[in-house]
Write a protein that binds this DNA or RNA. Structure first.
Length: 597
RNA sequence: GGUCGCGUAGCUCAACUGGAUAGAGCACCUGACUACGAAUCAGGAGGUUUGGGGUUCGACUCCCUACGCGACCA
């Protein structure tokens, strides 16, 4: 299609020359797709030329259209509406476009001139609780953006930075020590991450009671929060951990191990993966080195109490603490270390951080600090900032127990898909195992699509009912379209229809056929755009559009009843190509598509 | 208090660098399964794009302002 557009632009440029004597290079001409309600496929907006040409917009459109129809064989007709010149393209041209598209596999890389060596950091859980709905948006986004960047030919490494140390980890450890009676996940009959989460919650519960007690005893609220025995004990434990206390470290290793097992099970269930794991316990010391480096270079400064700061007022930010007075690290300390480590490992020219937008300020600071340090990789850092997920009842809040658990949610969507599939009686001929796989594919397809179709930057609302919906603008709608196409291909093979080659001699195409060819051709552009703005929503919308276009084609145009052998083969080929593109585009979202459903 | 972001149909979301009559889905109404899969398709109804100014041939998009919501920084 790029070729076709080039042809049209060149012709328009020539028309400008011949009709108006104006020198307008082809690159300066922007064509846009013609709106559905008008005849034609490409539109030139003529308003911008009224001044230089000294003519009215319609006059320009008429003259250019007239010239094209007589001089450019690819253009078979035109119409002018106000300042819009709509061009109709010859059927042969569309057949040619389709033939070219078929020569490459649907998942062939799309060169965009973008970054080549990329790291995408996502998921990055705390090791004191199971994953929840917010993590799911993060995980799906991270996985998908990585796949999209791969589709532009980049080498992409997915990494997970595990937040495995700090006061919150000690809280769950302490809760376990006090209330856990050394129970194991097996004994409790729980996944490891859920078990640890239970003790984190228990810690918080008892800690709050202590705070309340202190307050009723007349202690000021903020003092009570700091002085409650359980908080003091947690801080003791953190110090013991940093000092390498054997008992504490062993407990820490054991409990984190359980959490990793639990998280890994969730990752496997939702189909995301990582090339490398980083642990904050392994990077915070490196971060302290960066702070030292900044002091030596004179870009950081020390206050009287010994704490280390950076002044970012010139960058429009504020002063920022980098290291506490007692020498312990803060979040940004370890982030400095991790950034350095990632660069050593991958020498990236793009490093994506998939992190919620509540950390916009923090990420600005990180980038600014690395620039101050003169790090060559500072500019390559990109914060893929996504909005929080709200519930119909409002924000998710741990305190109020409104957090939607990832594992529970996954089993719910799978169950919903199962129920719907059974109700429709579509399990015929499937083994039990195949059926289970299908439910999982559909349930997860619904959930992933639901979370990915929204612009990542925007805050979104999670409606449980809509997230398991299988109709309308949903993942299963697209999966269904693919299953339908697969059915057509199976039948075509049974009937020995040869659709490997598409004849040049097709002289007529239905509007829905042209539309479908255009949609297929749009795929590479969608990838480029999605990669540029790092938005899976672009791909999600595209996959929906092409599925929609296919379903329209499917109901309007007969395939097997078509008596003309050439047309019939073309329609099967068109179906096959559409199926490949649907599969590939859904793959970029991390969603699988079934052969039947 | 300071900084940043958001506001589009009853609800959830689209709208490429400023382009035509602002589009989908859900919900509501109507029609289409003895041609290939109805988890589908076609049609109807639904909008002062939060309000008010400005720039432009043209503004959901850019600028100013008011209001509302959210996040972050102390």
């Amino acid at each position: 299609m790029q070729q076709l557009e080039q042809t049209l632009k060149a012709a328009l440029s020539a028309a400008m020359q011949h009709v108006f004597g104006a020198d307008v290079p082809a690159q300066q001409l922007a064509l846009q797709p013609t709106r559905k309600d008008f005849a034609g496929s490409f539109t030139l907006v003529t308003f911008p030329f009224t001044k230089t040409l000294g003519k009215g917009p319609e006059q320009i459109g008429q003259a250019l259209g007239e010239w094209l129809v007589t001089n450019e064989p690819a253009v078979t007709g035109y119409n002018v509406v106000k300042g819009f010149l709509n061009l109709e393209v010859a059927v042969q041209e569309w057949v040619k476009v389709f033939q070219q598209l078929r020569q490459q596999p649907a998942d062939a890389p799309v060169a965009t001139g973008g970054p080549q060596e990329v790291v995408v950091e996502y998921s990055s859980p705390n090791t004191n609780k199971p994953l929840h709905l917010g993590h799911l948006r993060n995980n799906f986004l991270g996985y998908s953006v990585a796949e999209i960047l791969k589709a532009t030919g980049a080498t992409v490494s997915k990494v997970n930075l595990v937040n495995d140390r700090g006061i919150h980890i000690c809280k769950s450890m302490l809760g376990y020590q006090i209330f856990g009676h050394a129970e194991t996940p097996q004994e409790a009959g729980m996944k490891g991450d859920h078990l640890i989460g239970k003790y984190y919650v228990l810690f918080e519960k008892h800690y709050r009671e202590q705070v309340k007690q202190l307050e009723t005893d007349g202690v000021a609220a903020d003092v009570a929060k700091r002085q409650a025995p359980m908080m003091l004990a947690a801080q003791d434990m953190l110090r013991a951990w940093e000092a390498g206390d054997e008992e504490v470290v062993n407990l820490w290793k054991q409990m984190n191990g359980w959490v990793y097992e639990g998280h890994n099970a969730t990752y496997a269930a939702i189909g995301v993966d990582f090339d490398k794991f980083y642990y904050e316990s392994g990077t915070y010391l490196l971060g302290k080195e960066r702070v030292e480096e900044g002091l030596q270079k004179g870009v950081f400064f020390k206050k009287e109490d010994g704490s280390v700061w950076v002044d970012l007022k010139e960058e429009g930010l504020d002063e920022k603490l980098l290291l506490r007075a007692d020498g312990t690290s803060v979040y940004i300390t370890q982030d400095l270390g991790t950034a350095e480590l990632k660069y050593q490992d991958f020498h990236y020219d793009l490093s994506v951080y998939v992190i919620a937008d509540e950390q916009n300020y923090h990420m600005q600071v990180l980038k600014a600090v690395l620039k101050k340090l003169g790090k060559p990789y500072a500019d390559a850092i990109y914060h893929l900032s996504y909005g929080m997920v709200d519930l119909p009842t409002g924000k998710m809040k741990t305190r109020e127990g409104t957090v939607v658990d990832a594992d529970e949610l996954v089993s719910e969507v799978v169950e919903a898909a199962k129920a719907a599939t059974l109700e429709k009686g579509k399990t015929e001929g499937l083994s039990e195992e195949e059926a289970q796989q299908l439910y999982h594919m559909l349930g997860l397809g619904a959930l992933k699509y639901y979370l990915l179709k929204v612009d990542p930057k925007k805050r979104m609302l999670f409606n449980p009912e809509e997230s398991v919906s299988l109709e309308g603008h949903t993942g299963p709608f697209i999966q269904y379209s693919h299953a339908r196409i697969s059915s057509i291909i199976r039948k075509a093979v049974e009937r020995n229809i040869d659709f490997a080659l598409v004849s040049d001699s097709i002289s007529e195409l239905q509007p829905t056929e042209i539309e479908l060819v255009q949609e297929i051709a749009r795929y590479s552009g969608a990838i480029a755009e999605a990669a540029r703005i790092q938005s899976p929503a672009i791909i999600a919308q595209y996959a929906y559009d092409i599925a929609k276009a296919y379903n329209r084609f499917f109901t309007e145009v007969p395939i097997f009843p078509e008596p003309d052998e050439t047309k019939r083969a073309f329609r099967v080929a068109l179906s096959a190509q559409t199926g490949s593109v649907i599969k590939a585009s859904m793959g970029l979202l991390g969603i699988q598509v079934p052969e039947r459903m």
